[in-house]
Design a protein around this nucleic acid. Sequence first.
DNA 1: TATTCAAACGATAATGATTCTCAATATAGA
DNA 2: TCTATATTGAGAATCATTATCGTTTGAATA
Lengths: 141, 141
Amino acid sequence: MDSEELRNAGLKVTTPRLKILTLLEKSAERHMTADTIYRLLVEGGEVIGLATVYRALAQFEAAGLITRHHFDSGQTVYELERGPHHDHIVCIRCGRVEEFYDKVIEERQREIAASLGFTLSDHALTLYGECNSQDCPGRQG
Amino acid sequence: MDSEELRNAGLKVTTPRLKILTLLEKSAERHMTADTIYRLLVEGGEVIGLATVYRALAQFEAAGLITRHHFDSGQTVYELERGPHHDHIVCIRCGRVEEFYDKVIEERQREIAASLGFTLSDHALTLYGECNSQDCPGRQG
DNA sequence: TATTCAAACGATAATGATTCTCAATATAGA
DNA sequence: TCTATATTGAGAATCATTATCGTTTGAATA
Ligand SMILES: [Mn+2]
Ligand SMILES: [Mn+2]
Ligand SMILES: [Zn+2]
Ligand SMILES: [Zn+2]
């Protein structure tokens, strides 16, 4: 249950936190902005403040429950930390986000950091391009 | 001369643009925020507006004279487009930025995009870690 | 060289995302 | 159930960036 996750993370089990966590789990879109989360909850009839959403997301991230990404769109997007690490490719036309993991790239990153005298602690890799989805506007066809 | 660069880029040769371009060329730090550029110019006795700096940087970028990066620090940083493409590693303690280019990673990116049905147009890769610089605060020793 | 006018400028207001403040409320433990 | 404390929601504040607007300037032309 979500209450468990919050307790394990050292966070009090509160109604707003449960609402947000549940939304993150059930939503079809894995990558969402704070405002999107806020809006979805409000549209769903919930009473919650935008500041609370931001606060909860910051706490979830500190607890390792979620990760945040800065795609070029400007806003920060959040996603539930489930499964192994991965990076992203974003369609510059329709915004679709796909995930990938590449062992070779991950290894090279470690080697590069080491060769430059850095102790690697994190990385951000995002690819941008045009997708071939049937729903993507601007597809030649 | 810098005037040449502006003309070739299809931009009028104006005093503010020359000041900014010259600063970008002469500054020891290759990666700077708009505000840093503005402040350095003002401190140097120049009269210029922050809005003008932002405008000029946007035009320079559109003209391919500079590139912009979004490191996790929040603000956008700009750098003169000189030499070949490269990515960055940033020290999370002192903010030092080093550049690198890795052929293997670049190739893998193309392959990954293709395998996911994307036409790759750009990418952003930034590594984060702790550097071993003598000047880096928090170094053990 | 003087004239002209669209482009560019600088000051400042506006915007959008995120964070802070604070009085009211809810949680976890006694 | 009672209490101390953490959390909440509304709205103000902040920070980076962009838009507005009256004035100035670059560069083409007379
Ligand atoms: Mn993801
Ligand atoms: Mn660089
Ligand atoms: Zn698409
Ligand atoms: Zn350092």
